[in-house]
């Protein structure tokens, strides 16, 4: 017998109610049930950061929470963030700096970048690297990713950035 439970949450601004297996992670729920496949599943044990989404505004591993735990929560995925235009400058900087190769890690990188750039101020490169310590890029693109995030931080602070 399959045990199911009801979950109601808001995903990218849309109210959703589904009957699901409690063992289904939020990442699998987003991908399978909601067809939001921008949330990637890599290690599925909270190490690689490819599954990061925002839960109630905070960066959260979709693989480390079960969807039933998100009852009543507001979830925003990479699809919501990009369609809302709120990370347009970060996406543009990633593009300009070649801060991605295969792109598998990019949704998680963007969620981390969005979270760390939310407070005012320009983080140091060390702080950016610290924030990215839970995001793996197997194409070894870290230098360009740090460049891109630093460039956006400076742009947002009103500084001139060399192209």
């Amino acid at each position: 017998m399959t045990i199911t439970a009801s979950v109601t949450l808001t995903i990218n601004g849309e109210d959703v109610t589904r009957e699901i297996e409690p063992r289904e992670t939020l990442a699998d729920f987003l991908r399978r049930d909601m067809q939001l496949t921008g949330t990637h599943t890599g290690c599925e044990m909270g190490v690689c950061g490819a599954c990061l989404v925002l839960v109630d505004g905070k960066a959260t591993h979709g693989c480390l929470v079960f969807a039933v735990q998100a009852e009543g929560s507001t979830v925003e995925t990479i699809e919501g963030l990009s369609e809302r235009g709120i990370i347009g400058d970060i996406q543009a900087a990633f593009h300009e700096r070649n801060a991605l190769q295969c792109g598998f890690c990019t949704p998680g990188m963007l969620v981390t970048a969005h979270s760390m750039l939310a407070p005012p101020g320009v983080p140091t490169r060390e702080e950016i690297r610290d924030a990215l310590s839970g995001n793996y890029c197997r194409c070894t693109g870290y230098e360009a990713i740090v460049d891109a995030i630093e460039a956006v931080a400076r742009q947002r602070a009103g500084e001139e950035v060399a192209a």
């Binding site: 909270g46 950061g49 990061l52 905070k58 960066a59 959260t60 591993h61 480390l64 929470v65 981390t112 979270s115 760390m116 610290d130 924030a131 310590s133 839970g134």
Partner: peptide
């Protein structure tokens, strides 16, 4: 606290 895992882990 800053030494514990990564920012997203510390959120939960």
């Amino acid at each position: 606290a800053p030494h514990v895992a990564h920012p997203a882990i510390r959120n939960r």
